[in-house]
Design a protein around this nucleic acid. Structure first.
Length: 605
RNA sequence: GCACCUGUAGCUCAGCUGGAUAGAGCACCGGUCUUCUAAACCGGCGGCCGCAGGUUCGAAUCCUGCCAGGUGCGCCA
């Protein structure tokens, strides 16, 4: 935290110098202790005296009361702290609006990032999305995409070199099932894909296959004919799978073609969502290398044979110590490929830390993977991290093809865009071009979807209720975007009235401009802005974008209060310039904060 | 059975490295647009923070036990 514009840090530095030496607290300790007073009337920054009680051997309220005159004497004339008030066990500081504003606001309002993190040496890879080809993307996949993408952005903001990686599931029984239905149950004509969204179209074929199998499974319990049909289907699927694994030319051609439909569709969706990958891995690449690894470490005695299968015994996972890596029939598993993938990451991309964004149900799996990699001798294994997140469900329970309640991504996108356009953008028709309206609808829809996916903490389930998601009032992405658009509008309007001058940090002009920012709304907005940089750091360190969501929502709420209470346009100078600084700082922080969530910040909406 | 997660307002959730009267959104009731975007703002209603113990000057927050729900647990991915 080397932020040259943090009010909290500046206050902490002053306190570290001014507090009696026996207290023994440095600026770093004090920054962590500083809090927000429950009511802004009390002050801008609070310092709790509980920690001093032990050293000074007095009751905290007494310490607070006694420190007031001491601090007042010790602080310089140019101190940021204008007023000190002891309230019970707390010292509450009110900052000098001119000096505080001049320190913080021009630095945020200016061009470039508000975060000045040093470049980190540790090279990271974040693996996320991992969709299966031949299946359609639904709202469940969306959570993973949004989370992974935001983590990439957050970690990069902290100076880490980050490789964003995807890992496509292009082999396995689900492919065989899809191709079974595609080849055996569709006519030549029915096998012709549509012009667009071919991946989704293919996914629906997979769903048909999965549902048919489930139905026959159910019916087969009582109906011998259905049981026979099921057995035949299973045999056929196994045959397809074996031919796929043997890379027989005829079936491989179908596989390549259909796979491309899925991949093209995924890429279109990633573009729409502004999600980017530096590296793309495929399960089909990890298949054989995985089996080679198994053989190698079986020879080395790290892996062992158990009931005909090969695996490793990890007693650290008490309830299920055996981790299978090769089936009895000699074929590979998900786990087998994960070992090969890890080797590919470590050796091929020279990374120090590998982050896996995968749902919480895989927690045991990844414990095993990391333990196994460690025993195989990979130094990076200790720095592997699984980011488990809870599932997305629907009001009637978990999504499932059998239940037929899957909400596909494209349906959500279309409904969201239509609703936003109809409710909020039609009023601009004629005034804006159709393309501009479509662009705004796209950006706001993305805001609603991504914020909805990120605002909840990772260990909470998300219950996806379409109607609730289409409501873009209150604590939603569009609320934050709206604040950004309104703030931009203020600047446009002000610039039309008279030039908006640029004010530099720490200058007399800045102090003069900020002197008048004394109302509750102005002070609270400024204080909220001051928390941005430290909040981003917490969100990145804890791999929790939801922390940033909560912050940005509070900031936005604060801005709306300011917006109503304090007119910018038409205010007398230098107050106008001061308020413009507040507005510009809010624009910068919101744009950067939303950017870290992968959400666009429209200039108008 | 074992492991992990969750339980806070009618609903959906913040807050959890202990600290000032427990906060939002939605829903419901009532106010605010001739001046910078009402996708907004303000007020009201609404809480044994799952239950019971313990630690502490102080517990929604830490510890223990219990209850309820979810998820995972060898040849699927």
């Amino acid at each position: 935290m080397s932020t040259a514009h943090s009010l909290a840090r500046a206050v902490a530095c002053e306190l570290a110098a001014a507090l009696p030496s026996e207290v023994g607290l440095g600026a770093d300790d004090i920054v962590d202790l500083l809090a927000k007073p429950p009511k802004p009337e009390l002050g801008d920054v609070a310092f709790p005296c509980f920690k001093l009680a032990r050293v000074l051997r007095k009751a905290p309220p007494k310490i607070a009361a006694e420190l007031v005159p001491q601090l007042q004497d010790a602080l310089s004339d140019t101190s940021l702290i204008a007023k000190i008030l002891a309230t019970g066990p707390y010292l509450n500081f009110t900052l000098d609006p001119g000096r505080a504003g001049a320190l913080l606001l021009p630095a945020l309002a200016g061009e470039g990032s508000a975060i000045d993190a040093a470049t980190q040496d540790e090279r990271l890879m974040v693996e996320f999305s991992q969709p299966n080809t031949h299946k359609a993307l639904h709202v469940g996949h969306l959570r993973n995409m949004c989370l992974g993408d935001s983590l990439v952005r957050l970690l990069r903001s902290q100076g880490y070199p980050v490789i964003a990686a995807n890992y496509f599931g292009d082999v396995g029984t689900h492919i065989a099932r899809c191709l079974w239905w595609y080849l055996d149950h569709l006519s030549e004509e029915q096998r012709q894909p549509p012009a667009d969204n071919r991946g989704e179209w293919l996914g629906k074929i997979y769903t048909k296959a999965a549902m048919a199998l489930a139905d026959w499974e159910e019916a087969g319990k009582t109906d011998p004919a259905a049981a026979k049909r099921l057995a035949e289907a299973k045999a056929r699927i196994t045959e397809i799978l074996q031919r796929l694994e043997a890379r027989e030319p005829e079936i491989t051609k179908v596989w390549d073609e259909t796979k491309k439909w899925s991949l093209d569709d995924f890429e279109e969706i990633y573009r729409y969502c502004d999600i980017h990958f530096d590296v793309r891995f495929y399960e089909s690449q990890a298949d054989e290398p995985g089996l080679e690894i198994v053989e190698e470490f079986l020879q080395k005695g790290v892996f062992e044979v158990s009931q005909g299968a090969v695996g490793i015994f990890n007693p650290e996972v008490k309830h299920m110590p055996f981790f299978m890596l090769r089936k009895q029939d000699g074929t590979s598993l998900y786990a087998t490929k994960d070992l090969a993938l890890a080797k590919l990451k470590f050796d091929g991309h020279n990374i120090d830390r590998s982050i896996y964004v995968v749902d919480v149900r895989q927690s045991d799996h990844f414990r095993h993977v990391f333990l196994t990699l460690e025993k195989m001798g990979f130094a990076q294994a200790k720095a592997c991290q699984h980011v488990p997140y809870e599932m997305v469900e629907l009001p009637d329970g978990p999504m499932g093809a059998r239940k037929g309640n899957v909400v596909l991504f494209r349906a959500l996108r279309e409904q969201m865009t239509a609703r936003i356009t109809e409710l909020h953008l039609e009023k601009f028709r004629g005034q804006w071009s159709d393309a501009e309206i479509a662009q705004a609808a796209h950006e706001v829809a993305l805001g609603a979807i991504k914020y909805g996916m990120l605002a909840r903490d990772v260990n909470q389930k998300i219950v996806f209720d379409m109607e609730a998601w289409l409501d873009v009032r209150g604590n939603t992405g569009p609320y934050l975007q709206y604040v950004h658009a309104r703030a931009c509008s203020i600047i446009r309007e002000c610039a039309q009235q008279s030039p908006v001058v640029r004010v530099e940090q720490h200058t007399n002009a800045a102090v003069e401009a900020c002197k008048g920012l004394t109302t509750l709304e102005e002070r609270e907005l400024r204080n909220a802005l001051d928390r941005f940089v430290s909040t981003v750091k917490v969100a990145a360190d804890e791999l929790r974008p939801s922390v940033l969501c909560t912050y940005l929502y509070e900031l936005s709420k604060q801005f709306n209060r300011f917006y109503l209470a304090c007119k910018v346009k038409g205010s007398p100078e230098p107050l106008r310039t001061g308020r413009i600084l507040l507005v510009q700082a809010t624009i910068s922080v919101l744009a950067e904060g939303l950017g870290l969530l992968g959400i666009p910040a429209p200039q108008r909406m």
